[in-house]
Each structure stands twice: as structure tokens, then as C-alpha cells.
């Protein structure tokens, strides 16, 4: 009981701060829109149709996954600031398990990402993405799973580093390869063989495949397969997160 209240306390703090920092909300929504309209409209004017969909609609699932990826991974940087300013100390000396502290932080980060998802799903309705209530619920849950895994990675990196500059450096090496070789922006079938191989070991590939499958009906694997891998991946990253918090 008290552990659940501790998780709630940590989460509530994150949610309140997110709601109070307007810049954070604005920037997290503006950047996916730029990608969607900048890239979607730009490349969309030269590429006609991919697998039956206009380019902008084809990349829509990838862009949502991307926003989740970016927001979630970068969320880990706040833990470095929290530690620098000693705000975290209060939580670390509390008589609650580190797993609960991690869970609270992780859910806080996932909340940030999912608020963005809600906004992007609403945008999707206006650009002719075929969204039904069922599709919205299914993609929301899948994206939540992706967010949980990615926030955990961000927190693992944040908990193990102690300066924000280092964090940005490390996170870029995680984020961009994951993003580029996930099939978010282009179908991966036509890639050279060695790049194609990379997409297979990239867990995000399965996340993108699941979301695109749910929204556009284009699957490379199956939904069950995608979700199983993402679930396994989320469990591994969460375990790593709890371990990192214990050492903090």
C-alpha cells in the first residue's frame, strides 16, 4: 500500500511539473508537427503513394512513434537535473523501495509522452488517417508500451550519468539509429542487406510495425509477434532501470 502511494507521489510530482512547464508541452507537440508537415509535405510532393497511402499518411504512424521515442528518451535528462539540484535526495532517503521510485518516475515520463500521443491522434483525424475508436485505443496501448520501454532506457542512462551534456551525447547515439532503422520514415524492404539486418535487431522496428499495422493495416510481422517483442524489451529495460536506481 505505502509503495503504491509512493509511486503515486513521485508520479504526481512529475505530472504537476509537466503541466506547469508550458515550454515543455509546446515543444513536444510542435516538433512532431514539423516532421509530419515538413517532411510529409516535402517528400510527399515527390513520392506519390507508398503501399496504397499518400506519403504523409504512410509516415504518420512512424511520426507518432518518433515523438514517443524522442520525448521518452530525453525525459531521462530530468533525473540528472533533479539530482544536481538535490530535489531527488528527499525521495531517495524516503523509506520506500527504489523500484517504486523508478516506477513513479517512469510513469511520469510515460505520461508526458502519452499526452503528446493524444494530441497527435487528434491531428491524425484531420489529415485523413483512417482512425476508428478501436484503432485509437489499440494504438494508444501499443504506444504506451513503447513509451514505457523508451522512458526506462532514458532513465537508465540518466541514472548512470551525472552531467546533462554527456546525456545528450549518449542519447543521440541511441535515438537516431533506433529511429532511422525502424522503418518509421520509409519501408525497410528495399534497404541493402546489412542495413536490413540492423532493422531486425532494433526493437523499435517492431513498435513501428505494430502501430503502422494497427492504423494502416500494413504488417511486416504479426501484431502478436510485434507486441511480444516490445513487451519483452520493456521488461528488460525496466529491470535495468530498477537496477540503476538501486545503485543511485
Amino acid at each position: 500500500m505505502s509503495e503504491i502511494e509512493a509511486i503515486y507521489a513521485v508520479w504526481l510530482r512529475e505530472a504537476k511539473i509537466y503541466a506547469r512547464e508550458k515550454e515543455r508541452i509546446i515543444s513536444s507537440i510542435a516538433s512532431p508537427l514539423l516532421w509530419l508537415f515538413g517532411l510529409g509535405a516535402g517528400i510527399g510532393s515527390t513520392v506519390d503513394v507508398i503501399q496504397g497511402y499518400p506519403y504523409q499518411v504512410f509516415i504518420y504512424p512512424g511520426i507518432i512513434v518518433m515523438s514517443v521515442l524522442f520525448t521518452s528518451l530525453f525525459y531521462g535528462i530530468y533525473i540528472i537535473w533533479d539530482r544536481k539540484l538535490d530535489f531527488l535526495k528527499e525521495v531517495l532517503v524516503a523509506p520506500v523501495s527504489r523500484a517504486s521510485v523508478f516506477a513513479g518516475k517512469m510513469l511520469g515520463g510515460a505520461t508526458d509522452a502519452m499526452i503528446q500521443v493524444v494530441f497527435l491522434l487528434i491531428i491524425g483525424l484531420f489529415i485523413n488517417v483512417p482512425l476508428t475508436p478501436l484503432i485509437i485505443i489499440e494504438s494508444f496501448l501499443t504506444l504506451l508500451l513503447i513509451a514505457i520501454a523508451m522512458v526506462s532506457i532514458g532513465l537508465v542512462i540518466g541514472a548512470n550519468l551525472n552531467n546533462p551534456e554527456g546525456f545528450s551525447l549518449v542519447i543521440n547515439f541511441v535515438m537516431w539509429p533506433m529511429f532511422f532503422f525502424s522503418g518509421a520514415l520509409f519501408p525497410v524492404n528495399n534497404l541493402p542487406r546489412w542495413l536490413y539486418a540492423i532493422t531486425y535487431i532494433n526493437p523499435l522496428t517492431y513498435g513501428v510495425d505494430a502501430v503502422r499495422g494497427i492504423i494502416l493495416g500494413i504488417f511486416k510481422f504479426s501484431l502478436l509477434y510485434d507486441l511480444s517483442i516490445m513487451l519483452l524489451f520493456a521488461m528488460i529495460t525496466m529491470a535495468a532501470g530498477v537496477w540503476s536506481f538501486r545503485r543511485m
Binding site: 510530482r13 504537476k16 511539473i17 506547469r20 512547464e21 539540484l85 538535490d86 530535489f87 535526495k89 528527499e90
Partner: peptide, 11 residues
């Protein structure tokens, strides 16, 4: 009560 302030500024 820590030496460095540890109350949350944004709350």
C-alpha cells in the same frame, strides 16, 4: 534537513 536545499521549487 540537508545542507543543500532539497525542497521542490516547482511545487
Amino acid at each position: 534537513v540537508f545542507q543543500q536545499p532539497s525542497v521542490d521549487d516547482l511545487l
